[in-house]
């Protein structure tokens, strides 16, 4: 399976995604420049983390207008799998591919640390290699990762089973103390209604090597490979 890793000016997890994906048997990854318009030959799209366009104005707000995003929308509308990580999640929300928004962390500080995530739903294109209720240890690193959506939207996400990951404690409880950024309902990752677009604040590419303390990120990428 061939992954396109988008490269915006200011992307800074693009190289990490390439490294992590190319180390997974069955996966290969290559860069796609933000000025390119073709995703031909790719089976999946990764919108990586970073500070696209410096995140001036608002996180992800400028990236949505870049030429490549038009192709990503077409790719997604045609059912292709798209995963947005951190800034990539912000871009997918700004582009309207995912509902809600990501705002400043509750504590106002940037937070970089390992967190526990509870898999809410293994019946999805992005979590089928895990099981429902499984706890994944994956790092976060963001200043604006507080997921916000209106009550109705949250209701719809719940009903449709679109929430795939929630921040939780070691016992798997989605407790407030385990919420690193104030996200509503401890939401760490959601998919779209069709199920082929996924955004998450944690960085699975940083949890694919035992030397980095966790390999739980592989569950996410392997799920995409399983299809």
């Amino acid at each position: 399976m061939k992954f396109a890793v988008l490269r915006f000016p200011g992307s800074n997890c693009d190289q990490d995604c390439i490294h992590a994906l190319n180390a997974i048997p069955g996966a290969s990854a290559d860069y796609v420049w933000h000025k390119d318009t073709s995703l031909a030959g790719f089976d999946a799209v990764v919108v990586p983390g970073g500070f696209s366009y410096g995140d001036y104005l608002r996180c992800g707000a400028i990236a949505r207008f870049s030429p490549v995003m038009k192709s990503v929308k077409e790719f997604a509308n045609a059912g292709g799998p798209v995963i947005g990580i951190c800034n990539g999640f912000q871009i997918l929300c700004e582009s309207g591919l995912l509902p809600g928004a990501l705002v400043r962390n509750r504590g106002l500080h940037f937070v970089c640390e390992h967190v526990n995530l509870r898999v809410e739903q293994h019946d999805s294109r992005f979590t089928n290699a895990a099981w429902t209720g499984q706890i994944l240890n994956i790092p976060i690193a963001h200043g604006e990762g507080c997921y916000f959506a209106e009550d109705e939207t949250l209701e719809r996400l719940r009903i449709n089973g679109q929430v795939l990951l929630r921040y939780c404690d070691e016992q798997g409880r989605a407790a407030d103390e385990a919420n690193p950024n104030g996200s509503r309902e401890n939401i760490a990752g959601i998919r779209n209604e069709a199920g082929n677009v996924f955004g998450l604040m944690p960085h699975p590419e940083r949890a694919c090597d035992p030397l980095l303390g966790s390999t739980d990120g592989l569950h996410i990428f392997k799920s995409i490979l399983k299809g």
């Binding site: 800074n12 500080h109 937070v111 970089c112 790092p139 980095l212």
Partner: peptide, 16 residues
């Protein structure tokens, strides 16, 4: 202090 720094990007920080 270091929680505010992204110390994990570039996939290198094996000792945090």
């Amino acid at each position: 202090v270091w929680r505010q720094y992204d110390h994990m990007v570039r996939l290198g920080a094996t000792v945090l």
